[in-house]
Computed example of a mutant assay.
Amino acid sequence: MPEYYIILKKILLGAEFIAALVGFIYFFKLKNNYWKWFSIYLIFIFIQEYFWFIRSSSFFVKKEDYYAFLGIPLQYIFLYWLYAFKSLKKRKLFYVLSFIYLFTYIPFQIFLKKINVVYSINLTTGTILLLFLIVLEFIEQIKNDDILKFKENKMFYINIGVLFSYIGTYPFFAFYDYLLKDEYANIWNIYFLYFLITTSIMYLLFTASFIWGKHKS
Rank of each mutant, 00 (worst) to 15 (best):
G126P: 02
I106C: 11
F99L: 11
Y119V: 09
L123Y: 09
K113V: 05
T104I: 07
T125W: 06
L123Q: 08
I128H: 02
L123R: 05
I115V: 13
I128W: 00
L129P: 01
G126M: 01
K114G: 07
F111Y: 15
I110S: 12
T127H: 03
K114A: 14
I121R: 02
T127C: 06
F99S: 13
I115F: 06
I115H: 06
I128C: 09
I115S: 07
I110Y: 12
N116Y: 09
Y119Q: 10
Y119F: 11
L112E: 11
Q109M: 14
S120V: 07
L129H: 01
F108R: 04
L102C: 10
F111A: 15
Y101S: 09
Y105F: 15
I106T: 11
F103R: 04
I100W: 04
P107T: 08
L123F: 08
I115P: 02
Y101Q: 08
T127P: 02
F103A: 15
L130C: 05
K113A: 12
Y101N: 08
N116L: 08
L102N: 06
I100T: 05
F103H: 06
L130T: 07
F103Q: 04
Y105V: 06
L112R: 10
I121H: 04
F111H: 14
T104N: 07
V117D: 12
P107N: 11
L130W: 01
I106Q: 07
T125Q: 04
F99H: 08
F108E: 03
V117P: 09
F108G: 03
G126E: 03
Y105W: 13
L130Y: 02
L102D: 04
N116P: 05
V117G: 10
F99N: 05
T125I: 13
Y105C: 05
L129C: 10
N116A: 12
T124W: 04
L123C: 02
T127W: 03
T125L: 10
N116W: 07
I110Q: 11
I128A: 09
L102S: 08
V118S: 10
Y119I: 05
K114H: 11
Y119K: 09
K114I: 05
L129Y: 00
Y119N: 10
N116I: 09
G126N: 03
Y119C: 00
F108H: 14
K114P: 05
Y101P: 01
T125P: 02
N122F: 02
G126W: 03
I100H: 00
K113S: 14
V117F: 13
N116Q: 12
I128S: 02
I110N: 07
I128P: 00
S120P: 03
Q109E: 14
P107E: 11
S120T: 15
F111E: 07
N122D: 06
I100D: 01
I115N: 12
P107A: 09
T104Y: 06
I121C: 07
T104S: 14
N122G: 09
N116T: 15
Y119P: 00
F99G: 09
V118K: 02
T127Y: 00
L112V: 15
N116H: 13
L112C: 13
F99M: 11
K113E: 14
K114V: 04
K114M: 10
L112H: 11
I100S: 03
T104H: 05
T127S: 12
I106H: 10
L123T: 02
F99P: 04
